[in-house]
């Protein structure tokens, strides 16, 4: 019997094996169910909330059709991250993860595969939601560059969250429990933010919390990037938050990654 010539080291392996794993992760998402979810969910949320609150906020002088889609984008970024966390847990439960560990597969390729597939998923989601939002009156008023910034910020946010959910998923190994566990902080964070309701509509004592929640900061930056006059201060704040989340969650994920079997 012949031993394989190469080992797992090297950039070539990292990229090639990462691409194979990313392709495999994406094939898991390429189901009818997922396609329906990707189209139906944005429609449900954009038009559902618009019907629900459009009139109430119009009365307060807020263009809800422009206000809402960035929130749906942020919400969907959470969904991308949570789904990814559950997928990592499933890979650990099924033994796929362990099989990769005993194969000459570059350790970084496993992480790269996740990052790449989630980036693609997040990108598609942002595009779909922006198009859906367009039907509801949402527009990029700030030009092409700001629109690109909108997409980039959203995807970066999804990836930072994914690092966190990957840490949870890999350390648990129970996809159902992970999905439930991640749902709670997601709901609380998205509802206690400026996603659906502006900060001043919350009770006064809660307003500072709402305004400074990282989720609000990111959503407000997304809104700013879609507006006629993007505020770079707001965008910078969001970039800092995303960077902090990415570092904290990234460290946690790599620690779990080194221990999980």
């Amino acid at each position: 019997m012949t031993a394989a010539a190469g080992t797992e080291a090297g950039l070539g392996n990292l990229v090639a094996q990462g691409a194979v794993l990313a392709g495999r992760n994406l094939r898991h998402r390429a189901t009818v169910e997922m396609a329906v979810m990707f189209v139906v969910f944005p429609l449900i949320f954009v038009f559902g909330f618009l019907l629900l609150f459009g009139r109430l906020f119009d009365a307060r002088g807020l263009d809800y059709g422009q206000f809402l889609p960035p929130a749906i984008v942020a919400q969907w970024m959470f969904t991308v991250a949570n789904t990814s966390g559950a997928a990592s847990a499933a890979d650990r439960a099924s033994g796929m993860y362990r099989r990769c560990l005993v194969m000459p597969v570059n350790r970084g390729a496993i992480a790269l595969g996740r990052i790449a597939s989630e980036a693609v998923g997040a990108f598609v989601a942002v595009v779909v939601i922006s198009l859906t939002g367009h039907l509801a009156g949402f527009r990029f008023h700030g030009g092409v560059l700001a629109a690109c910034g909108f997409v980039a910020l959203a995807v970066a946010f999804a990836l930072a969250l994914t690092a966190g959910t990957t840490a949870v998923g890999l350390s648990s190994g129970d996809p159902a429990a992970v999905a439930t566990l991640l749902n709670l902080p997601y709901l609380a964070l998205i509802m206690l933010s400026t996603a659906f309701v502006p900060a001043d509509a919350f009770p006064g004592w809660l307003e500072p919390v709402i305004r400074n929640s990282p989720v609000s900061v990111v959503i407000d930056a997304l809104r700013s990037l879609a507006s006629a006059s993007p505020s770079w201060v707001e965008v910078r704040g969001a970039v800092v938050w995303v960077a902090v989340l990415a570092v904290v969650f990234g460290v946690a994920a790599s620690r779990v990654f080194r221990r999980a079997r």
Binding site: L56, F57, A188, L192, V197, F202, P203
Partner: peptide
């Protein structure tokens, strides 16, 4: 949780 969250979110609006 939903009750509390929705109350603070939508109550005023």
């Amino acid at each position: 949780i939903l009750l509390l969250l929705m109350l603070v979110m939508f109550g005023e609006v």
